[in-house]
Computed example of a mutant assay.
Amino acid sequence: MDDWHLETPETFSYPDEDDEDDTSFSDEEDTSSSDDEEIPFNAEEEISINDEEEIPLSDEEVIPLSDEEDPAPRCAEFPYVVGNSIPLQVKTPQHETMVEAKIIRLFEPFTFSCAMVVRIDCPALAMDGNEDMVLKVFDRRFSWSSREISDVKPWSLELEKDFIQFASGEIGSKFVRALPEGTEEPPRSEWNTSQDEAFLEYTTTGIFHSETKSYKLMKDMQGTDIPRLLAKVVLPAGDLALPEPLEQGHPGVLLQYIPGFLMSELPYNAPRKLWQLICNDAARIIDRMEDMGVLNMDIHARSFIVKLDVEEATGFKVTLIDFGVCRFRDEYDNEQKWKVAKAEHVEEQLQEEGDVGHDMQFSLRGAIEWPRPPEYPKLTIDYDHLGPIPGKLFDDQ
């Protein structure tokens, strides 16, 4: 997500979405089979590193950060702390209610949303009796990547007070209403900090709408190839009333929690002979998503979770996460333009550093070939000079 270029008001628009019926509570078991059944694999026999019983998250667990992943400095008003409980207004097609979400684990550094594992005592939301779920709050105050890309100062209480005063006034309301058309004044180079905050609130709200529209269009993929969307939520923001098209409070989503490892960590968690099949499964998910009218423009190796699954032919199941930066079929005038967009998307996956196909081929030293439609020419990369993959890997490599 760090490579995403924040769009300007001239091109940025919220996707159209219907607020109803975009969450799924289906308990039906998916019976689809893997396309790679020709290679039988017994995960319990061949993968010793992953055959231990899953250990439940403790109330104090935080993902360790590397030196390159230090989170932005905390402030006294920072609510996302392990052990804290935060209020959420939960919205489902059936009901609305207020709940307390206890933060169990943080996914840091935050990018365009604040993502964490939370525990909520709400039987209507729990899946298979599991009270742990993923909460993503689209909170411009602490969405570090948005602020960094937009060259906006770190959030502070003083900035927030100025923004509230600005947004509550006639000038601020006029400025916000002009953002979708790109007709706001003054020009971007002359914005003050309150106008910066208003633009960030607008773009962050747009990312939320992209995420929820994607889940709605891909409803048939929920619970298998993508997490299940459990509910929309709002983190209340006091009595602040923002002008349209901004959301009231900080919007978010509650998602099915899927334990596993990032696909970028594939060589340290799966045998070499399975790398190609796992990448094939990831590419299949992208193709299926595009068939449903969704182009994920911010897809990386870390956009996939890989978990142990003895019911799969490979012993692993791939799940795609993060849909905040997407394009949709209904944004294009005709089918030909949509096909061109999909073709360009295939090329970007392979040729641009940071995109999934390029990075998986590069990180695995050419041990896999990222799948692509046969009508597109193959990308040839010389990996001979790279040498062996560093680190402790499986014995069969």
Rank of each mutant, 00 (worst) to 15 (best):
A282N: 01
G252N: 10
V253Y: 03
V306C: 15
Q248E: 15
G293H: 07
D309S: 12
V306F: 05
V294H: 02
G293Y: 06
L295A: 09
L320A: 15
L277C: 03
L266Y: 00
W338D: 11
I278E: 01
P245V: 07
P259H: 06
G324R: 03
M297R: 15
S303P: 04
T319F: 04
D239N: 12
P267G: 07
L255T: 04
I321Y: 08
Q336W: 09
G238K: 09
K339V: 10
P251Q: 08
L229G: 01
S264A: 12
Y257S: 02
E244R: 14
L308A: 12
K273R: 11
L262N: 12
A241F: 08
L262W: 01
R272W: 09
E331W: 12
M289K: 02
S264K: 12
F328N: 08
A283N: 03
D291K: 12
D298E: 14
D287P: 01
E335V: 11
V310G: 09
F328L: 10
L235T: 04
C326V: 08
K337I: 10
G324P: 01
A231I: 06
A301H: 06
Q256C: 05
F323G: 03
L230P: 05
F316N: 02
R327E: 15
G315Y: 00
L255A: 03
A313C: 05
D330C: 10
T314Y: 01
Q256Y: 05
D309A: 13
C279K: 01
R228W: 05
L295D: 04
D281W: 00
L266V: 02
E247Y: 06
G293F: 06
A341E: 14
T319K: 00
R272D: 11
H250N: 12
Y268H: 15
W338V: 10
K339C: 13
I286A: 09
P243E: 04
E244H: 10
N280Y: 06
D239R: 14
N334S: 14
L246E: 07
V294G: 01
Y268K: 13
A231H: 07
D333P: 07
D322H: 00
V233S: 11
E290M: 14
A241I: 15
